[in-house]
Every structure is written in structure tokens, then in C-alpha cells.
Simulated assay, not measured.
Amino acid sequence: MSSPNAGGFVELTIDGVRYSISGELEIEETNFEAEAQVNQDGTVSRTQKPKPYKFSLSIRDRQGPSIQRLLYRDDTLIDVSAIEKQMKRGVLLTGAFATGTPKRNTANGEISGIEIVSDQMRFIS
């Protein structure tokens, strides 16, 4: 039987340090994208191409070490987990790195535009 729960609390951990998510966490759980193609005779087909697993998120700046410097160092591969408390499941990206263009809002402390990508993902409990 499936759970009636959706949403709820999310615990984000980057290399063992917990961070507060300020907005939604979007998780791309597939490492491919598919697109419909229409052939010249009107029939349809599908093409697929690989892509990384991805977390898209915004976090709250707590006046600690610069999260941008932590995530965007050239030599850093990180492990990132997101535990969905009410859903009783989690997702782990290992050997990940950050992409995107982070922006820090000085009025509310939100750092947005962060993406974490990896070619390795697994579900954890």
C-alpha cells in the first residue's frame, strides 16, 4: 500500500554537514532524457540521451563558511544526501560536483541557483 504522504521535511547533508534548504529541492532521478520525434511519414519515435542525476536547490546562508567556495572548488567531489522525513526515503549522490550559477540574496539569506550533479545515485532509507 502506498503512503498518503507527500512533501514535508527534507534533511540535506553535504559531506557530512547539514544545510537548511530554503526552497524546494528538485531531484532528477533518471540519468537520461527522452524526446519524441515525428518522422516524415507521421509516425513517432523516441530518442534518448544520457544526462547526470541532479539536485536543484536553494539553501539558507547561516554565516558559516562560503557554500559557494565549498561546492565550486575545482578539485572537489562531494557526497550529498537528501532525506525526505515524511516519505521515509532518501537519495544519495556520490562523487558529485556543483554546477549552475549561485546567487546570494542579502535580504533573506537565500542562495539559489545551485545544482548538484553526479553519475551515481542510489536510494537510501
Results as ranks from 00 to 15, higher is better:
residue 32 F to I: 07
residue 51 K to L: 00
residue 67 I to F: 09
residue 52 P to H: 02
residue 48 Q to K: 04
residue 60 R to E: 12
residue 46 R to K: 06
residue 69 R to Q: 14
residue 50 P to Q: 01
residue 64 G to S: 14
residue 69 R to D: 13
residue 67 I to P: 12
residue 72 Y to N: 03
residue 40 Q to F: 10
residue 72 Y to P: 01
residue 67 I to M: 12
residue 44 V to L: 00
residue 40 Q to Y: 11
residue 61 D to W: 04
residue 54 K to W: 00
residue 38 V to Q: 14
residue 60 R to I: 10
residue 60 R to K: 15
residue 63 Q to D: 14
residue 45 S to T: 14
residue 50 P to R: 04
residue 58 S to R: 02
residue 63 Q to N: 08
residue 42 G to R: 12
residue 63 Q to I: 01
residue 57 L to N: 07
residue 48 Q to A: 06
residue 55 F to G: 02
residue 42 G to C: 14
residue 57 L to G: 12
residue 46 R to V: 11
residue 51 K to M: 05
residue 53 Y to M: 05
residue 55 F to Q: 10
residue 63 Q to A: 14
residue 74 D to T: 05
residue 61 D to C: 07
residue 54 K to P: 06
residue 46 R to A: 07
residue 32 F to S: 13
residue 54 K to Q: 10
residue 55 F to L: 02
residue 72 Y to K: 06
residue 49 K to N: 01
residue 47 T to M: 03
residue 72 Y to Q: 06
residue 50 P to K: 06
residue 58 S to N: 03
residue 34 A to I: 13
residue 45 S to F: 03
residue 38 V to N: 07
residue 54 K to S: 00
residue 45 S to L: 01
residue 43 T to Q: 09
residue 55 F to I: 05
residue 67 I to T: 13
residue 39 N to P: 08
residue 32 F to A: 12
residue 60 R to M: 15
residue 35 E to D: 11
residue 45 S to A: 09
residue 57 L to Y: 11
residue 62 R to H: 10
residue 62 R to P: 00
residue 35 E to R: 14
residue 46 R to H: 02
residue 44 V to M: 07
residue 54 K to E: 15
residue 58 S to W: 08
residue 36 A to Y: 11
residue 60 R to C: 01
residue 46 R to E: 11
residue 56 S to N: 15
residue 71 L to N: 01
residue 36 A to D: 15
